[in-house]
């Protein structure tokens, strides 16, 4: 297991959002976590990233407990996140946004090469490299957000709602990108409301409901699962 959550509890103030979540991600996988608004998906990713306190339970990465380590240490260990709503630095240029993604690695260290690689994959970002991040379109921002997270050269990439607010055609393109990133060797934990898309790129999936994992299976099985169909696939 690359990442393992064991009975993780987390929340805000008196409200407990995660009530003992256990999931696992194998190296090389794409794992999707499905769930409605407020089920605790983002909280889960933020707890992995060290932003939210893990009140109980363990988070193992590469066999080592990483719960409640500072966020920058978690990035250093090889987990980076593209957060919900993209959160591009609006008044940093596209190139500077990418540089910030590589902050933990320092300057040098092949930073220029990685930026070039991103620009080869996304020519539009190269075109806009000196434009401010806030001026990009939603789809462009999502590409930038994912690229920025990849700049840390993570072993595990956390993606929070990458399709949110994007036009259907752009969504398809983003999911192709996700598949491609995985093919090149990065493990991905994906959180999505767009269950259909998520299950089509993922190998396995979990269903999170009000802070608890209620279902776990291969993506193919989940797509045909009656309960999942009813609740998340609009069928």
């Amino acid at each position: 297991m690359l990442l393992q959550l064991e009975e993780v509890h987390a929340g805000y103030g008196a409200i407990e959002v995660l009530k003992g979540v256990s999931i696992g991600v194998e190296e090389g996988e794409i794992v999707a976590v499905l769930g409605a608004n407020g089920a605790g998906k983002s909280t889960m990713l933020m707890t992995i990233s060290g932003i939210n306190r893990c009140r109980q339970g363990r988070i193992l990465f590469d066999g080592e407990a990483i719960q409640n380590r500072p966020p920058h240490e978690i990035v250093q260990r090889g987990i980076s996140q593209s957060p919900e709503g993209r959160r591009i630095f609006p008044r940093l240029s596209v190139r500077e946004n990418l540089e910030m993604g590589a902050f933990q690695r320092g300057h040098g260290n092949g930073l220029g090469d990685d930026v070039e690689r991103v620009f080869t994959a996304f020519p539009i970002l190269k075109e806009r490299q000196s434009q401010l991040g806030g001026t990009l379109s939603g789809g462009e921002q999502q590409m930038l957000a994912i690229s920025r997270a990849l700049m840390a050269r993570p072993k595990l990439l956390l993606l929070d709602e990458p399709s949110l607010g994007l036009a259907p055609m752009v969504v398809t393109r983003i999911f192709n990108i996700i598949r491609e990133i995985n093919r090149q060797g990065t493990t991905i934990l994906l959180v999505e409301q767009n269950a259909n898309m998520a299950l089509h790129v993922a190998h396995r999936g979990y269903v999170l409901e009000t802070g608890r994992i209620v279902l776990e299976d291969t993506a193919a099985n989940l797509i045909s699962n009656e309960q999942v169909k009813r609740s998340y696939l609009g069928g």
């Binding site: 630095f89 940093l92 540089e99 910030m100 993604g101 902050f103 840390a152």
Partner: peptide, 19 residues
């Protein structure tokens, strides 16, 4: 640049591994 990043979006900066 890290200072500007933290000023613009502290959470995103944390997620980028900026201490």
């Amino acid at each position: 640049k890290a200072m500007r990043a933290v000023a613009q979006d502290r959470l995103a900066a944390q997620l980028m591994g900026i201490p």
